[in-house]
Amino acid sequence: MTTSEHPPLAKKDYKSDQEVRWCPGCGDYSILNAVQGAFAKLQKQLHQTVIISGIGCSSRFPYYMETFGFHTIHGRAPAIATGVKVANPELDVWVVTGDGDAMSIGGNHFIHAMRRNVGLRILMFNNRIYGLTKGQFSPTSEQGKVTKSSPLGSVDYPFAPIALALGAGGTFVARGIDILGAHLEETIVRASGHQGTAYVEIYQNCNIFNDGAYKATTDKEVRDQRILYLQHGQPLLFGANKDRGIAFDSHFQPCLVSGPDLGKAFVWDETSESPAPAMALATMSEAEFPVPVGVFRRREKPTFEAGVVQQMAAAKARKQESLHDLLHAGEVWHVN
């Protein structure tokens, strides 16, 4: 993407002059850092890049990036971004959203962006809480969550966002974690290279309203045992010494394997035609199994905007018509 006329862009060149106003200690800072790192690695041109957000803490993101940015309304960012991308497919369009924005008020736009395979990169910061409105349970909060709006615990069952994206036909579905900066940066780089909708769920800690939501997964002491790094072509192994693994039974139920059975660990294929392995990993219990991060699914499929452009080009090639002829089409008559 670099051109010889311009010096390469450094990470700081992607930072806007706006003061970052997230709470001190918020996971959003490390995500911002990872995105800026990924953009520098990719040498993204500032003027070709658009970041569109909805409403929520995460949706302040565009103000902190020295690109084009559009901070829109609650839940609608994927729909607005679809218009941006279809009207100018050359643009590199990113959507930054949260679990309330994308899974609740904007759930419909989220699934339809996936279904159409629009060329958007959707980064969903999942802190399993409503932060900006001060701490109500979200559609990804665990059942029984005690909050101001659920004093006796939430009754709702949560979404598994990766499973939702897979079910909606997502062609690139991945997960990262705020504090795993290098892995997150790499995942964002990979999302950027995808043709079609690239969805990255990012586990993010809200230290004010849901502090420690991912503690049981991300604490240094447990991390190796609790995080499974998905690597294309490699068996599903985890643990400091990669001595435990995940295999599937004949019903595609996951099971833990170790010792002499370690060889049965499933060899991960992120391009698998069947979504079943990815769906199995996306829906397995976090209590019993480690949390997978990395790319769940990556499939090549023509994008929505390419289809739209192609139809228009074909229509223009087939028929050329002046405005005069358009207005005079059909039956006309003359009065003298």
């Binding site: 569109i52 559009f70 309304i73 607005i80 679809t82 218009g83």
Partner: peptide
């Protein structure tokens, strides 16, 4: 929303 995006 998509129309607004296109105008943008």
């Amino acid at each position: 929303a998509s129309a607004i995006g296109a105008s943008y």
